[in-house]
């Protein structure tokens, strides 16, 4: 990889982080039966993981999640998000690279993300809070995965431009 392409890749990664934050802040879809909101940051992370690979997926996911929490005022979660979304991106990218099955990669990534947030809530407050967060996080992950599945083929077409 030449340094020029390297710089372009870095900047694209940075823009994806910014997009993660934007999608997390702009799209807040309320969930019926609960008072929770879901946001679409997972969609962006999963798309990056599938298109760019495990390591960029982890970087975009981890730092994007951290930045999102930091500027939306959930700084107590920021390092948990770094781990949760970083792992999510890494696992989605890695499983897809290895087995070439999108549904497997996305499913595993979402489960890991939900488990990480359960652990975060259980550590910060009590396991009850963690359990209450599971459905919300699961729906958020699934919606993100569905959106990712639709968008990925379109983004892949334009991906070659970057290198």
């Amino acid at each position: 990889m030449t340094s020029k392409n390297h710089l372009r890749q870095l900047i694209f990664g940075a823009l994806m982080m910014a997009l993660t934050v934007v999608l997390g802040r702009v799209f807040n879809i309320p969930i019926p039966w609960t008072h929770g909101n879901i946001n679409l940051c997972d969609a962006c992370i999963l798309i990056c993981a599938l298109v760019l690979g495990p390591v960029p997926g982890a970087i975009v996911g981890g730092l994007g999640g951290l930045l999102l929490d930091l500027i939306s005022g959930y700084s107590q979660y920021m390092f948990f998000s770094l781990i949760a979304h970083g792992l999510e991106g890494f696992i989605a990218g890695w499983l897809f690279k290895r087995y070439h099955r999108q549904s497997l990669a996305l499913g595993a990534a979402i489960i890991v993300m939900v488990a990480c947030y359960f652990a975060a809530d259980a550590i910060l407050y009590t396991p009850i809070v963690g359990a209450l967060g599971i459905p919300t996080n699961l729906i958020q992950g699934i919606v993100g995965a569905i959106v990712a599945l639709v968008v990925v083929p379109q983004v892949k077409k334009y991906r070659q431009k970057l290198s």
């Binding site: 020029k4 710089l7 372009r8 890749q9 900047i11 694209f12 823009l15 994806m16 997009l19 999608l23 969609a43 962006c44 798309i47 959106v147 968008v151 379109q154 983004v155 334009y158 991906r159 431009k161 970057l162």
Partner: peptide
């Protein structure tokens, strides 16, 4: 999302 992604790719190339 699709225009946003495609726009970001173009922007990354320009900024790079």
């Amino acid at each position: 999302l699709i225009p946003l992604f495609v726009g970001s790719i173009q922007r990354a190339i320009d900024l790079g």
